[in-house]
Nucleic acid binder design. Sequence first.
DNA 1: CTACAGCTTAAACACTCGTTCAAACTCGTG
DNA 2: CACGAGTTTGAACGAGTGTTTAAGCTGTAG
Lengths: 215, 215
Amino acid sequence: MEPKRTRARRKSPVRGSAAGNRRIAILKSAASAFRRRGYHGASVDEIASALAMTKGSLYYYFRNKEDILYACHEYSLDFLLHLMREVRDEPIPADQKLRKLILAFVHLILDELQATALTLDPEALSSPLLEKAIAKRDEFDRGMRAIIQEGMDADIFAPGDPKMIEFAIMGAVNLISKWFDPAGPMTSQQIGDAFANYLVGQLAARPGVAAAMRR
Amino acid sequence: MEPKRTRARRKSPVRGSAAGNRRIAILKSAASAFRRRGYHGASVDEIASALAMTKGSLYYYFRNKEDILYACHEYSLDFLLHLMREVRDEPIPADQKLRKLILAFVHLILDELQATALTLDPEALSSPLLEKAIAKRDEFDRGMRAIIQEGMDADIFAPGDPKMIEFAIMGAVNLISKWFDPAGPMTSQQIGDAFANYLVGQLAARPGVAAAMRR
DNA sequence: CTACAGCTTAAACACTCGTTCAAACTCGTG
DNA sequence: CACGAGTTTGAACGAGTGTTTAAGCTGTAG
């Protein structure tokens, strides 16, 4: 009795792009709610209502609330990792690599999923998912530090502790989502530029190098 | 009947320093829990248990959970505002003012209350308290921007948007609490120095000024 | 039209957690 | 010792919310 649990439990409905879009729409609504109220503060009902659905429907697309949170992280981390792998080996100086990554990060936060690896309470994830998310974030962290180190070795960045500098950059960018107001005077492009200018442009404090010829 | 509600509802027990300490101890425990799990994710029971109390006791010191959160914000914001007022008019160059404030901020986050204005979900506060917290944070923000502007006017900082730079600095420092590990290799002092060096030292990008003669 | 897969719904359940409160405890003072 | 203010407790409650489920809807293929 009982027909063997339908084998694969029902594959997540990513078949037609329609269903995929629905999943993405849920992710965006969830990310927005998580950002505003925090993971525990945002209710599943809230996420669904913003899409004119009932909360029950969400369970057709995701196993549970935690699964939604993980999907948010995976979405943005995969985006960043993809870019990181691309940029890392390009034949351009380290400051330009850093700049590209920061711009993309700001864009991701403001225009795409309003999600970040740090802001969206990853600590709410439990064991198997948490490790996966941390592993991805670690890979990104390592890439960032390698680029910073590369810039220091090439003498286009002032010496310092790459780990601390990376934390500072990630912190600055991650928290943009906390104060950004889409109705405000600045576009995401302008914010990205301003942050990149400050965070990497000024890293080149060595006299006569790079910093001068921007824009 | 009913004796007029004891006049002032029972003043918060700050009388003896013992009671005051208890309040502070609760704040520290709460700040730690809020930082780890978020405001909604941390339970009142959790905050009490860390102090070997029962959750009922907390209601002798605070009206409710939100009141505890507000006290956390007030504590750290008052600390920062006090320092800001002191530093603002000192006869030292802007970069040293900025440096002082950043160092104190890092110290506050790592050694004192593990609380910050941005990280500890201020949005969980409701109307009357939220406005008070925002007003204090705004005053601090304005002070920071004034100092940055001052440095630009004096030509010891490269030109830029003070608002964006201030957001970047606050974001970088605020998020320290998310990754800091007391058992890690760096002391809070070293972290503060590294952040100050990067965040303000690098602001001075004009050739031949300031940047050279640090340390 | 009929059948059926895909999708949505409403209601119900189980559980956690913030808050209240009357009773109990502690300890310095008279 | 007895009193009482200050402090703590444990139990109880009620509201909110994540999750399940069986039934219902919709549109497309036969």
